[in-house]
């Protein structure tokens, strides 16, 4: 939001009539919220009639499911991010990570293994790391590797592909490789002005716990809206895109790797569940299914929405395509070698 202009003494043209009187308080967003709540409650019968069609109902179920499923991870993410911002001294990361970005990237990528969350938590955490002075390439490597190579995801993968430990290994290597390569490319070509200037909340003059509370609410409100955007999109694509188009590409290896990569972007499945979906796509080669699991945690519609809200649109139009290409290449390499 932009800082307000100093208004002339007359009420601005767009001010609605109720606030004309200087004695009365201005209309706040809380009033708007109250009005919206009352209106929606009144319109409730209409709403349930709209939600009557099978496709709309399926969309609504998938949408709510994505939001509900992401909620604990987003809360975990903003908790960690606020904790990093408030309780971890800035000097800690300077000491923990190598000075040069080229060396810090792989260290941060491997550090991703310790955050047992999915992609929704890693976005706010990466932002918190950058705010604490971690170089963007290293924070981005962490952002990409954390949802893909943490123990929960690797165990889920081994359960989904029983008796095939090479799939777990290929996923680990391809995901870590993608994170590190993207980090290095960013260290070489990335520009700081691509990041939207999103200052955190003003924490001067407040106690630690108060600062923790303020940053947590700030981060959640900022990320939450974009998560909903991602949920709307993913649910829509989930319902609209017919699965039968997948059968058409199953025969060509190259095409099927790209198709399953694209499917991962479209479906926006949580990284802890994607291995089970990949396992059920039996008509495709293992390499194509590996691409599904490597692309999914790093680029998908929900994540792109979340990233553009956190880092800005100029960032995401460069970062997401770069990640997609590197992830596909990484899957082809790891798949060709191990599977």
């Amino acid at each position: 939001m932009t800082a307000p202009q100093t208004s002339p003494p007359q009420a601005p043209a767009q001010a609605p009539t109720p606030v004309r009187s200087a004695q009365r308080r201005a209309l706040t967003s809380t009033d708007v919220l109250t009005a919206v709540l009352v209106l929606v409650l009144l319109a409730r019968p209409l709403l349930s009639r709209v939600a009557d069609g099978a496709a709309v109902r399926t969309w609504a179920t998938v949408f709510v499911a994505i939001c509900v499923q992401a909620l604990p991870f987003l809360v975990l993410g903003v908790l960690l991010s606020a904790a990093i911002a408030v309780f971890v001294p800035a000097a800690f990361f300077a000491r923990a990570l190598p000075r040069s970005p080229a060396a810090a990237v792989p260290v941060a990528g491997i550090a991703g293994a310790v955050l047992p969350g999915c992609e929704c938590s890693s976005v706010p955490v990466a932002r918190g790391l950058m705010a604490r002075g971690v170089a963007p390439p290293a924070a981005l490597a962490f952002l990409l590797s954390a949802p893909a190579i943490n123990p929960v995801v690797l165990v889920a993968t081994s359960v989904a592909f029983p008796g095939r430990p090479e799939v777990v290994l290929a996923r680990f290597l391809a995901s870590l490789g993608t994170a590190v390569v993207v980090g290095w490319v960013w260290a070489r070509f990335g520009r700081s002005e691509w990041f939207a200037d999103r200052r955190g909340p003003d924490l001067s003059g407040v106690g630690r716990w108060e600062a923790f509370r303020i940053s947590m609410r700030h981060d959640f409100v900022h990320a939450g809206g974009f998560l909903v955007v991602g949920g709307i999109t993913a649910a829509m694509l989930n319902v609209v895109v017919p699965r039968s188009i997948l059968d058409a590409v199953g025969s060509s290896e190259w095409l099927s790797v790209l198709a399953l990569g694209a499917l991962a972007v479209v479906l926006a499945i949580c990284s802890e569940a994607d291995a089970f979906v990949a396992a059920s796509l039996t008509q495709f080669s293992l390499t194509a299914r590996l691409a599904f699991m490597v692309v999914g945690p790093t680029v998908d519609v929900k994540l792109v929405a979340l990233q553009s809200g956190t880092f800005g649109r100029r960032f995401v139009v460069r970062f997401a395509p770069l990640t997609f290409v590197v992830a596909i290449a990484g899957s082809l390499l790891a798949g060709g070698w191990l599977l």
Binding site: F63, G200, V221, I232
Partner: peptide, 19 residues
């Protein structure tokens, strides 16, 4: 002004209404 919630945060109402 620098830390008011963004407009997109209004969308958080959607899952609430849906539920």
């Amino acid at each position: 002004a620098d830390h008011g919630g963004p407009r997109v945060a209004w969308l958080l109402l959607l899952p609430v209404f849906a539920i």
